[in-house]
Amino acid sequence: MSKNQLSWILVSPALMLLLVVGGIPLMTVLNFSFHDVFNQSNIFWIGTDWYQDILQSDRFYNSLGRSLLFSALILAIEIPLGIYLALCLPKRGIGVSISLICLAMPLLVPWNMISIIWIAVLNEQNGLIGTVLSGIGFHLDWKFNPAHTWLTVITIDVWHWTSLVAILCYSSLSTIPSPFYQSAAIDGASRFQVFRYVELPKMNQVLMMALLLRFMDSFLIFIEPFRLNAGGPNNSTMFLAMDLGEEVAAFNYGPSAARSVIYFAFILCVAWSFNAVLNYQNRDNRKLEN
């Protein structure tokens, strides 16, 4: 048996599983996206009408703009904050375990509960943060003031996911051997130079992964803003995935399928670009090693 055959036999169970739970649904949405579905026995071919509807609607571009803005803000806050926290974590001792466990806590909360917990915390009568805010005279109106809703959604996301970035960065920082730091100190490197030329290159790959996951998850964020305010007030926190969720809830097969296809095309582009960057970096690394 050749290595190729053996390899493909070994990966086939995983591939089959993914094709069933990912591939077949994608084929289904691709099919539905070109049809008008009244019910399972009345299905009509309508070509690219759904795509035209979506791509010509203001609503799509508004949601796209909001999602891009949201992702940009999330990345701008969480990535630097995550890196900073990773640098703040102790290098050894009992503090490491305690800090890591504390940081991991938000990742363990079921996603539909996150907004519920935050609504309770922001409650002005008995919430831990809400009472303090109203005490200093700031009335956080996440229900009716768009700016405040945005602030709340971003705070929730920072609470939920910054730890992930921090934990990832910490894991790669902890693999830097101490002679690196010693020789940097001998060379008289400033703190910033140590970060720029010793620590940042080491974190490169893990940062890429954090960037990819945080970008995709925030770009197609669904549960948290939906549970907080269902896209309100006045659709000001209506993100791309929530438009889709709405169509699905109404069982609009055609339009929701067309949306799914458009989003998946976008996901493929992101995955492909990420892959390309990864390849490029690997090639650079190999050159350095030679």
Binding site: L26, L220, A241, F264
Partner: peptide, 8 residues
């Protein structure tokens, strides 16, 4: 994200 293929 699961939301993209939840209907199918």
């Amino acid at each position: 994200p699961p939301v993209v293929i939840m209907l199918p």
